[in-house]
Computed example of a mutant assay.
Amino acid sequence: MATDISTLVGIILMCVGSLMVGWGLILCYTTKGEYYNADEVQAMVAAEILEEKKKKEEDDLMFDDIGAEIGQAGPGKKKKKGPLISD
Protein backbone atom coordinates (compact mmCIF):
# COMPACT_ATOMS: atom_id res chain seq x y z
CA MET A 1 0.00 0.00 0.00
CA ALA A 2 2.80 2.43 0.93
CA THR A 3 4.56 1.74 -2.35
CA ASP A 4 1.39 2.51 -4.27
CA ILE A 5 0.94 5.90 -2.53
CA SER A 6 4.57 6.92 -3.12
CA THR A 7 4.30 5.89 -6.76
CA LEU A 8 1.10 7.87 -7.15
CA VAL A 9 2.63 10.97 -5.51
CA GLY A 10 5.72 10.62 -7.74
CA ILE A 11 3.61 10.39 -10.89
CA ILE A 12 1.58 13.44 -9.87
CA LEU A 13 4.73 15.46 -9.15
CA MET A 14 6.27 14.42 -12.47
CA CYS A 15 3.11 15.51 -14.30
CA VAL A 16 3.07 18.87 -12.53
CA GLY A 17 6.78 19.37 -13.30
CA SER A 18 6.26 18.46 -16.94
CA LEU A 19 3.38 20.93 -17.21
CA MET A 20 5.52 23.68 -15.70
CA VAL A 21 8.38 22.98 -18.11
CA GLY A 22 5.96 22.97 -21.03
CA TRP A 23 4.44 26.29 -19.93
CA GLY A 24 7.94 27.76 -19.58
CA LEU A 25 8.87 26.66 -23.09
CA ILE A 26 5.67 28.17 -24.48
CA LEU A 27 6.43 31.47 -22.74
CA CYS A 28 10.02 31.46 -24.00
CA TYR A 29 8.83 30.81 -27.54
CA THR A 30 6.11 33.48 -27.55
CA THR A 31 8.28 36.20 -25.95
CA LYS A 32 11.30 35.48 -28.13
CA GLY A 33 13.10 38.67 -29.14
CA GLU A 34 11.38 40.86 -26.58
CA TYR A 35 14.21 42.16 -24.46
CA TYR A 36 15.44 45.54 -23.35
CA ASN A 37 18.96 46.80 -23.70
CA ALA A 38 20.64 48.99 -21.08
CA ASP A 39 19.76 52.27 -22.86
CA GLU A 40 16.05 51.46 -22.97
CA VAL A 41 16.02 50.45 -19.30
CA GLN A 42 17.84 53.65 -18.33
CA ALA A 43 15.36 55.74 -20.36
CA MET A 44 12.38 54.02 -18.70
CA VAL A 45 13.83 54.58 -15.22
CA ALA A 46 14.56 58.24 -16.01
CA ALA A 47 10.99 58.73 -17.25
CA GLU A 48 9.60 57.20 -14.05
CA ILE A 49 11.78 59.43 -11.87
CA LEU A 50 10.79 62.53 -13.85
CA GLU A 51 7.12 61.63 -13.52
CA GLU A 52 7.46 61.17 -9.75
CA LYS A 53 9.24 64.54 -9.42
CA LYS A 54 6.48 66.30 -11.38
CA LYS A 55 3.81 64.67 -9.24
CA LYS A 56 5.63 65.65 -6.04
CA GLU A 57 5.97 69.26 -7.24
CA GLU A 58 2.27 69.39 -8.09
CA ASP A 59 1.39 68.04 -4.65
CA ASP A 60 3.70 70.57 -2.98
CA LEU A 61 2.13 73.43 -4.95
CA MET A 62 -1.35 72.22 -4.08
CA PHE A 63 -0.55 72.07 -0.36
CA ASP A 64 1.20 75.46 -0.49
CA ASP A 65 -1.92 76.97 -2.09
CA ILE A 66 -4.11 75.43 0.59
CA GLY A 67 -1.78 76.73 3.33
CA ALA A 68 -1.84 80.26 1.85
CA GLU A 69 -5.64 80.24 1.74
CA ILE A 70 -5.97 79.50 5.43
CA GLY A 71 -3.26 81.97 6.44
CA GLN A 72 -0.31 79.71 7.00
CA ALA A 73 3.15 80.13 5.52
CA GLY A 74 3.11 80.44 1.75
CA PRO A 75 5.61 79.21 -0.81
CA GLY A 76 9.21 79.88 0.08
CA LYS A 77 8.46 80.23 3.79
CA LYS A 78 9.21 76.93 5.39
CA LYS A 79 9.56 76.42 9.07
CA LYS A 80 13.07 75.42 10.07
CA LYS A 81 13.31 72.24 12.02
CA GLY A 82 16.10 72.06 14.53
CA PRO A 83 16.99 69.92 17.47
CA LEU A 84 14.56 70.02 20.37
CA ILE A 85 16.20 71.29 23.54
CA SER A 86 14.41 71.07 26.85
CA ASP A 87 14.77 73.92 29.32
Rank of each mutant, 00 (worst) to 15 (best):
I12Q: 02
E40N: 04
S6H: 01
A68S: 13
A47V: 02
I66Y: 14
K54G: 06
S18V: 10
G33D: 02
M44N: 06
E40I: 05
M20H: 02
V21P: 00
I66K: 15
L19M: 10
E34I: 12
M20D: 02
Y29V: 06
A43K: 08
D60V: 07
V45H: 00
E58Q: 11
L25A: 03
A43Q: 15
I66A: 15
T30D: 02
E40C: 06
G17W: 02
T31Q: 14
A47F: 04
D65N: 08
V16G: 08
A43W: 01
D59N: 09
S18W: 02
Y29P: 00
E58I: 01
L19H: 05
Q42D: 06
T7V: 09
D60G: 00
D60C: 04
G67Y: 06
L27W: 13
G24T: 10
G22T: 02
A68E: 11
I49C: 04
K56D: 01
M62I: 01
E40P: 00
L61R: 10
A43F: 05
S18K: 12
D59L: 10
G22Q: 06
W23Y: 14
I11G: 03
M44K: 13
G17P: 00
Y35S: 03
V16T: 06
L25D: 09
Q42F: 00
A38P: 01
M20R: 08
C15R: 13
V16S: 11
N37L: 00
G10I: 06
S6P: 00
C28Q: 15
S18Q: 10
L61E: 09
K55T: 03
K32S: 11
K53C: 01
L19T: 09
V16R: 08
A46N: 06
I26T: 11
Y29L: 04
A47D: 08
K54N: 07
S18C: 12
L25K: 10
D65V: 05
S18P: 00
K32V: 01
A68I: 00
I11F: 12
E52M: 14
F63M: 15
C28V: 15
E48L: 05
A46K: 08
M62V: 04
